[in-house]
Amino acid sequence: MRLRALAALLLLAQLLSGCSTPWGRASASRNVTLYVFAAASLTDAFQQIGRGFEEQHPGVRIVFNFAGSQRLEQQIEQGAGADVFASADERQMRAAVRSGRVKPGTPRVFARNRLVVIYPRSNPGRLRGLRDLARPGAKLDLAAREVPAGSYALEFLSRATRQYGTGYRTKVLGNVVSYEDDVEAVVRKVELGEADAGIVYESDVRQGDRQRLRVIEIPADLNVLARYPIATLEGSAHPGLAREFVEFVLSPDGQKALRQHGFLTAAQQQKRTREGR
């Protein structure tokens, strides 16, 4: 009896210790899989970039994990097997640096984005301008403040208060009906007409969405420029390939794909800021 118990314990111990080997990662085989954790707003652009990278690197497969940057950062901090992290804000990248998964000084800004207000084409809230967001009864959908898009939106509202008068921010926040877990969920709910308006990135409004969505531009002096940093992760099974992917994102090909999907690149951003100021 004792012996059996011991054997069972040993088996259990073996099972538990076995859990620390990274199962499911194709590191030994010739076909290499690179895991890229990227902000939800990058979904379309990065899928295109991923296809381009795969074409240049036969045998390499890119697997993306798209979610709110804050959630990705949590997963990375908890030891998720990822090779590259592309965040929608610098706060989450700093958190990844603090956790030791990103080497200090390595993150590089690869894209920028601006905020816009979107509303359904049917315009159930009868919005005409940014002021209308503060009108009682308007139903506004935002990303949660933990999400980069959400914290940028709050920053915009604070700036707008200076222009539209005290109480603007409070009134607008009083109209919020939901705080979504990532910015894509805001786009979907406005697109479905559930909310009267939402605050999202300019790049979130895709060509296909233009039929269902309308956009109110936010003037440059009130707008917030989202900066997207990218970095390879410590503990990556393919550090060389991970660096190559980062370089590819920063290369003319990668930057072109980002531009096509509504992002601002470094050069564009400087020009626009000068215009705005």
Partner: peptide, 24 residues
């Protein structure tokens, strides 16, 4: 979270608060 959304005090039930709270 999909149908009712996530609004503290209105639609944010305990599982939603746990999920959102986990980040902050």
């Amino acid at each position: 979270i999909i149908f009712a959304g996530n609004m503290p005090g209105r639609t944010q039930t305990m599982p939603l608060a746990i999920y959102i709270g986990f980040e902050m």
